[in-house]
Nucleic acid binder design. Structure first.
Length: 118
DNA sequence: CAAGTGACTTTCG
DNA sequence: CCGAAAGCCACTT
């Protein structure tokens, strides 16, 4: 069946998944890639977050490394910004790191499917 | 077209 | 826990 809308590009899929992460939850580069249908493309997720148009709103701060660490070196301006955004979402950040076991977003299949609006 | 570059991940010591 | 190595792939030079 024909779709009425254009196919999203890979980076649009990534942005969509990132913005689907609920407040108070986090995900990882690798998982975002998987959920966007781009397995093995964790580095590309990082690329897309760094190079996103400044006019779109993106919850980039909810994306962490696979071990829960922020992607930025502790103490850097970006790390501090990300920490503050996470804290204001209710996510605990200790030593530049989030306890993945407590805050990882694990959507059910229906929840994932309905992140897409038709 | 070849080579360098990552907001990455996993494995191994 | 830390670092190195290898795998990864889009993008830039």
């Amino acid at each position: 069946m024909n779709s009425l809308v254009n196919k999203p590009t890979s980076r649009e899929k990534i942005w969509h998944i990132v913005n689907s992460i609920p407040d108070g939850k986090v995900s990882t580069y690798g998982r975002v890639a998987d959920l966007a249908g781009l397995p093995g493309r964790a580095r590309y997720v990082g690329y897309c977050l760094r190079n996103c148009p400044s006019n779109i709103q993106l919850d980039w701060h909810k994306v962490l490394k696979s071990n829960g660490h922020l992607a930025f070196t502790k103490g850097t301006e970006m790390a501090n910004r990300q920490r503050d955004l996470l804290l204001s979402d209710g996510v605990t950040v200790v030593n530049n790191k989030v306890t993945i076991a407590s805050f990882l977003w694990v959507p059910s299949l229906p929840e994932l499917i309905f992140t897409f609006d038709y």
